[in-house]
Design a protein around this nucleic acid. Structure first.
Lengths: 136, 136
DNA sequence: CTATATTTGCAACATTGTTTCACTTACAAC
DNA sequence: GTTGTAAGTGAAACAATGTTGCAAATATAG
């Protein structure tokens, strides 16, 4: 799906800032941090607008926020932004050597058995370690 | 195990700040945020010392840091601080209504099957939803 | 093209986390 | 106990991250 159609299908106005963010994520494969996105946006990046647009994009389910640690956040496209999806469907891996984050599509989120009365809205699995390139 | 023995058994000097942090966590059952611990420490709380002591306590495995979101962090005692334990053994639940965090001891961390070459150091499961009191 | 509701970008502020350095304290050796 | 020393503390200053209010700009429906 092309960048502007993703926004359109979610009833979100297509503004240059939002298009730039989604484009950066589409072109990257790996989830990106704010700084990595900023680099791609060049001079059109504005911190405040970025935060507000991320708020819009994540609550629409287009982008998911991957919180590795309080000082390290990555953003990834939610499976081509197909639909409203507030729940991650797979785990995320953080390489402590090269600091990259990858979506582990093969590690699915299980059906958790919560204590009675508890309701599940969303869940995240973060696995930390060394990726293939860095584990030698 | 009493507070000072926990520190002693990890070869960490027992200073008033550290004792106060561990005591606060021991008396609470639920994991606590920095502000909640600060309240219990009263006037002896110092922000810089707190961060440094948390660094020491978490890397010793006495306390584990539960990152719910980049702006919401809770700290919990690692199963009575029995031993060096850098890996959580259970999931954590965050109630989006009352903002409490509980350790879900019954939701164990599975053995993840990582792609070949990947090494696992640590992992976290965060489940967000509504707790028993708030889900009615 | 025009109207209007949304978005942007700036200033100012609030929170969170780190570094440096002089002073103090914990604790081991005596 | 007293003392020496390595470790911990707390203040100042800084850096990074996130939020709010408001006037100007702009995306889209009609």
């Amino acid at each position: 799906m092309n960048t502007t159609d993703i926004l359109k299908s979610h009833d979100i106005k297509k503004t240059p800032g939002r298009i730039a963010i989604v484009k950066a994520l589409q072109e990257s494969e790996l989830p990106l941090s704010e700084n990595e996105i900023k680099t791609q946006m060049e001079e059109m990046y504005d911190r405040i607008t970025f935060y507000r647009n991320m708020q819009v994009l994540t609550s629409a389910g287009i982008v998911h926020k991957i919180v590795i640690d309080n000082t390290l956040i990555k953003y990834g496209l939610s499976c081509d932004g197909k639909e409203h999806r507030h729940q991650n469907e797979h785990a995320h891996f953080y390489c402590e050597k090269c600091h990259s984050v990858v979506c582990l599509k093969e590690v699915r989120i299980p059906d958790y058995q919560l204590p009675s009365g508890y309701k599940l809205f969303d869940s995240d699995i973060i696995i930390k370690g060394a990726c293939e390139k860095c584990s030698h």
